[in-house]
Nucleic acid binder design. Structure first.
Lengths: 346, 346
DNA sequence: GCGCGGTACTAAACCGCTCTAGTTGCGGGA
DNA sequence: TCCCGCAACTAGAGCGGTTTAGTACCGCGC
C-alpha cells in the first residue's frame, strides 16, 4: 500500500472519513475518546496531509510567492536580496509557510506567473519587489484579488499593502551630514533608473543641495552591478572639479567605487568621502570601512512577511507599514574634504 | 463565475470534459478541428490549469525543493548561497519549474519537511546541501524514494545523485602554490567542522604539508561568520612564529581576516599571504584584492538543477557529476613571504 | 450485407480531503 | 409515554483535473 489516506485510517479505526477529518483538524463532531484513537492511529500509520487535495477544496496553500524580474546572475551579487530572503524565511518558517521563488525575465513574465500561481492555488499571496515608476504589476495583482504586499513605497499601489522605508529622509540625512562636514560637491551613483526608490533618492538629493546651497549634484544611474558602479565612479572622478563626496545606492557599488579611487590615486577619506545606501558585511570589513545607511534588511524581510501573513489572514485589511528610516553609521570613509581642492573651488 | 474550469470549456464548446483534457494536453483522441476549437475557447476564457487538481491525479508539481538547515541570518552573509540560488533559478525557470524554499533549524526538521512535501506532492525532487559527516538525510530521502541531488561529494550518499567539486585537489593546488612562493607555515581557517567538505579540505592540507615537508598546519574550524573568521585570524597571528599564509574556507572570512591583519599591523601580502576558497565580488573589489579559488557558483547551481531535472525525468538514472576543480585566481593578496621572518624560522 | 478495425468522442470513476445534510441513539422535559 | 434536542457520527457530493471503459460511427474488404 502506498501513502496512507484518511480512508485507510477510517477503516482501521472503524469510523467514517468525515470523522477522521474532523478529528485531525481539531474540529467538533467527534468525542474526545474517538479523536484520541484517530490521532494515535494516524501517527502510527505515519499519515501526512496531502496539500494538493486540501488546496482543491479551497484551503490555504501555506506558501507565499516571490517573483523577481532581474537577471538571475545579479541576484548573487547583491547582499540585499539574500538578506531579505533570510528575513522572510525566518518569519515565514515559524508558521510553517513556505516560499515559492522564481526569477523571470521581465514584468510581463512576472505577471503571467502571478496569474498562474494564483489560479493554481499554489500560493496564498505575493511579495512584490522593485516597484517601478509606472508599474503594470499593481493593477494585475489587484485584478487577481490575491493578497500581496509591495516592498518599497510610499505611493500609488492602489489597494495593495506595502512596507517601505523613507528613502527621501535617508538621503536628506546623508547630504546634511556631508554638508556639515564641509562638502560642497556631492555626487550620486544611483541604481536602476526605472525604480521608484531610485527616483525618490535622486529627487531628495537635488532638493537637498538646493536647500543647502551646494553645487548642483549629478546622479548617474546604473544597473547596480559592481562594473557599472566602478565605471560611474571613474566618470565622476575624471571631472574637474571632481566631487568630494559620492553617495552610492548599494554597498557593492560603494565597494567598487572605493577600488576605483585607489586605482586613480584618490585618497579615501582625505580626498573623497564615500557613503553607501545599504549596509552589510561588505561595508564593515573593508579598509577603510564604509560609512553606510544601515537598515537591517533581515528585519525588513520579517516585517514584510508579517504584513503579508496579516493580509492573507484578513484580506480586507489595508496595511501600510513604514519601517524605521535607515540610520547613518559613520565609519572611516567619510571626513571633511581636503582644504586644497574641496572647499575653495565652489 | 469564478475561474473557468475545463467543465466550463467543455460546456461552451459542446464536448465532454475528457475531450477538453485531451485537447489541452496534446493527446490523441480528438480531431484537429475540435482541438483547435477547444484551444481557442480556452484562450478566450483565459483558462489556466489548477496544479493542485493535477497533483491529486499524481502529475508533476513542476517544482523542486531546497531546504536549508542554517540560521536564516547567516544566509545573507554568504554570497555562496545567493549565487547558487541564482544559478538554480536560471536553469529551472527555463523549464518553468519553480523552487520551494524553506529555512529550518536542524537536520531533523529538514527531514520532516522532506516527508511533508513529498507526501503532499508539493515538489518533484530535492536539492540537498551541506552534506555532513554522518548524515541522516541521505537515508531519509532514499526511503522516501524521491528524486534528489546532493551538492558536495564525492562519497557515500547511497543511491542519490550528486554534483561535486574536488575540494581535495583544490586545496592541494593552493598549498603547492604557496609552497612554490616559499611559504613554510600555512594555516587554515576552516568552516563548520561537521561538514564533509570541511573535513576533506583539512585532510588535504595535512597531507600536502607532509608531502612538501612544510611545518605542521593548523586548521581552525569556524561557523563561516565574519566574526569567527576574524577571531581565528587573531588567534593565528598571535602565535609565534606566526603563519606566513592563511587559507580561508570562505570569501567573507578572508575579508574579515584581511581586516584583522590591517588592525594588527601585519602587511598583506608582504608579511602575510591570504587565499580564499570561494570567489565573489568581495574578493575582487577589496584592496589588496584577494587571491581566490574561483568556482563559478552560478554555473554550479545550473549543473545541480540539470542533474536534478534529469533524475526527475528518469528516476532510475544515477548521476554523479564532478564539476571542474576550482582554479586559483591569483590577485594581490599573495606574495613570497618576508625573508626576515618567513623562511629562516623553520 | 455483414463484420472488422479504427477514430472521435462520452460517461464516469478516481485522486485525498473537506464539508454539508442527514441519521442514529440517548437523556430529559412535558 | 412521547417527542424534542443535542451530541456523535455517516454518507456522499464536490473541488478540477486525468484516465479508462465504453459507444457511435465510418470506411473497407469479402
Amino acid at each position: 500500500m502506498g501513502r496512507p489516506t484518511i480512508a485507510d485510517i477510517a477503516q482501521r479505526v472503524g469510523v467514517s472519513k468525515g470523522a477522521v477529518s474532523f478529528a485531525l483538524n481539531g474540529r467538533p463532531g467527534v468525542s474526545e475518546a474517538t479523536r484520541a484513537r484517530i490521532l494515535e492511529v494516524a501517527r502510527e500509520m505515519n499519515w501526512r496531509p496531502h496539500s494538493a487535495a486540501r488546496a482543491l477544496g479551497g484551503a490555504r496553500a501555506e506558501a507565499v510567492g516571490l517573483v523577481i524580474a532581474r537577471p538571475a546572475s545579479t541576484l548573487g551579487v547583491e547582499p540585499f536580496f539574500a538578506q531579505l530572503l533570510s528575513g522572510l524565511q525566518a518569519r515565514l518558517s515559524r508558521q510553517q509557510v513556505a516560499m515559492h521563488l522564481l526569477v523571470v525575465e521581465d514584468s510581463e513574465a512576472e505577471i503571467e506567473v502571478y496569474r498562474e500561481w494564483t489560479s493554481a492555488h499554489r500560493v496564498d499571496g505575493f511579495i512584490l519587489v522593485d516597484p517601478k515608476i509606472r508599474d503594470p504589476r499593481f493593477a494585475a495583482l489587484e485584478e487577481l484579488g490575491v493578497p500581496a504586499v509591495v516592498l518599497g513605497g510610499p505611493g500609488r499601489h492602489g489597494a495593495l499593502a506595502s512596507v517601505w522605508a523613507d528613502d527621501r529622509e535617508a538621503m536628506v540625512s546623508v547630504v546634511d551630514y556631508l554638508a556639515a562636514l564641509g562638502h560642497r560637491r556631492v555626487a550620486h551613483v544611483a541604481g536602476l533608473p526605472g525604480l521608484r526608490h531610485t527616483r525618490r533618492r535622486m529627487r531628495a538629493l537635488r532638493d537637498s543641495v538646493k536647500r543647502l546651497g551646494l553645487a548642483d549634484a549629478v546622479s548617474l544611474p546604473t544597473d547596480f552591478s559592481d562594473a557599472e558602479g566602478a565605471a560611474a565612479t571613474r566618470t565622476l572622478l575624471s571631472r574637474d572639479p571632481r566631487p568630494t563626496a559620492v553617495v552610492y545606492d548599494s554597498d557593492v557599488m560603494a565597494l567598487a567605487g572605493l577600488g576605483v579611487a585607489g586605482e586613480m590615486g584618490v585618497a579615501v577619506p582625505a580626498e573623497l568621502s564615500i557613503v553607501a545606501f545599504d549596509d552589510s558585511v561588505l561595508t564593515r570589513v573593508t579598509h577603510p570601512s564604509i560609512t553606510s545607511l544601515s537598515r537591517d534588511t533581515f528585519a525588513l524581510g520579517g516585517q514584510v512577511a508579517d504584513v503579508l501573513l496579516e493580509v492573507i489572514a484578513d484580506p480586507g485589511a489595508r496595511r501600510d507599514l513604514k519601517t524605521g528610516t535607515p540610520r547613518l553609521v559613520v565609519r572611516q570613509s567619510t571626513a571633511p574634504p581636503a582644504l586644497g581642492k574641496g572647499t575653495k573651488a565652489v
